[in-house]
Simulated assay, not measured.
Amino acid sequence: MDAVREAVMSVAELETFLAREFPQAFGPGKPHHVVGVGHNTASVRLDADDSHLRPGGTISGPAMMALADVAVYVALLGQIGPVGLAVTTNLSINFLRKPAPGPLLAEARLIKLGKRLAVGDVGLTGQGSEELVAHCVATYSIPDRR
């Protein structure tokens, strides 16, 4: 049986790396925040504001897709370290219900972590609710680190 592998990056290290590499989404005054990281898991929050809403007063699909994508990326970095060039190769999302405006939480878990590919799934919930507003599966390509 394999030993449980703890995260190799802390929340603070992830936040610093993401603010440097993706300043449009992370850092002071930005909408995305790493809430937690563990063995093959990550929690990321989007503090959705008016720029994330669509007509009808709900968080837009592109904002939810970006949050889900970021959450899988954070779970992956938590296991392999700061690899800026790990990239999404596939992302599929099911929108289940309209989220109310406000914070949205993504809970990601890696369901496969290989040498070249990682697959994760993500559940998105609105603040104060356990009901999923969306479910996503994403695949990441991991660059050769030689």
Rank of each mutant, 00 (worst) to 15 (best):
D144H: 10
P28E: 04
P101M: 01
I80Y: 09
F22G: 04
R145C: 13
A63K: 02
F22C: 02
T139K: 14
R20T: 08
V72I: 05
T139C: 15
V137P: 06
I111K: 14
T139Q: 15
L46I: 09
L110G: 00
P82N: 07
A66I: 14
G56K: 03
L117M: 08
G126E: 10
V119D: 05
I80G: 10
D121W: 08
V8T: 13
P55Y: 11
T58G: 14
A68W: 05
E107P: 13
V8D: 06
V137R: 01
A3F: 03
V119H: 10
K30L: 05
L113Q: 14
L46H: 09
K112G: 05
H39K: 03
G81L: 07
G114Y: 03
L96A: 04
L67D: 10
C136N: 13
A7R: 03
T41M: 05
S129W: 13
T139A: 11
H52R: 09
V122N: 07
T125E: 08
N90Y: 04
Q127D: 15
M65A: 07
L113G: 14
S51M: 07
P62W: 00
D49G: 15
V122W: 13
G57L: 15
H33R: 12
H32L: 15
H39G: 00
A48G: 07
A12K: 02
R20F: 05
D144E: 12
S51K: 12
R20P: 00
A71F: 09
P101I: 00
L53D: 13
F95K: 00
T139I: 09
T41W: 10
T89Y: 11
I59V: 15
V8R: 13
H32C: 13
E130P: 09
A71E: 11
A25Q: 13
A63F: 07
V87W: 04
L76P: 00
G84R: 09
K98D: 12
D47A: 14
L91W: 05
M65Q: 09
A25I: 11
D69R: 03
V133L: 08
A12H: 05
H33K: 07
G61F: 06
V74D: 08
L14Q: 01
R146P: 14
Y73A: 03
